[in-house]
Amino acid sequence: MSAALTDTPGGTRGRLSRAYLGMVAEPWLYLLPSLLLIGGVMLLPLAIGLGYAFQEFNLLRPGAAKWVGLDNFQDLWADPQFWRALRNTLVWTGASVTLQFAGGLGLALLLNTRFHGKKLVQALVFLPWAVPTFLTALTFSWLLNPVIGPVPYWLSGLGLIEEPYNILGNPDTALWGPILANVWYGVPFFAITLLAALSAIPSELYEAAEIDGASGWQSFTKITLPFLAPMIVITVMLRTIWIANFADLIYVMTGGGPANSTQILSSYIFTTAFKRLDFGHASAIAVVLLALLMIYAAILLAVRSRLVRR
């Protein structure tokens, strides 16, 4: 690209292709560090991890890893804890997403109106999103503890439990502790994304509907919801995947206990890898979780493409 290069006979071709190469290479140069890191720290380990699922590989039982085909999956099939974790995953994910979404939609609709002190209110209600997960988990396990927390007394006052005890200690109710924490933590996320989508709906639409004689409820079902629908589907899908993979709250609050009653698939992966150091088994669970999530995503994407086409 320098002036000295000009007017050298026969140089045009070389110059052009060098300039061309430079233009092609430039974006890759900027992307290179990102790609190297993602490749080395995420994609390569992903491939290795998928491989573990088909090997017997336990750090507590030394000896070279060996390929065992589908043995790990057969073990899983016979593992009652796995089935329990699968059921729990459905409850955990379903309840968390539903409650987070409902709470988030309500909050977004409220914040989309005009009122005094909106900025402050917004900052306060979004704050839980910024609280580190481990702290959320610890705070809620303390709140649920009858020694220092008020929640058990509220629950018994409401008649939901007979006496103020720690619901985290009861296998039948323990899962609802992390779900409560998760709802607290996740409502802001839905509220923020839905609020952004709401404010993107042109206000002329509501004015036109009002002139056409629509009631407030009709405006909501005929304008707001259809407008939000594609966005809701994609957000709910991504969030579902994220929550199904999200083991931190459960691990910190109950460690999967009591008696594995709160283990979900992802926390089960973690305890299997972290405590039992059985990487083969852990990876097999992870592969099952991955497959389930992919099926789920495929279904939801199909629904979304139908929604968008309409």
């Binding site: 995420m42 390569l44 380990p45 992903l46 290795i48 991890g49 998928l50 573990y52 590989f57 199904a244 993979n245 083991a247 992802s266 992966i269 973690f270 890898a273 972290f274 990487f279 852990a282 990876s283 992870a286 592969v287 979780l289 991955l290 999530l293």
Partner: peptide, 8 residues
């Protein structure tokens, strides 16, 4: 699931 890569 990020946990799939925790072992590797």
């Amino acid at each position: 699931p990020l946990l799939i890569i925790i072992a590797p």
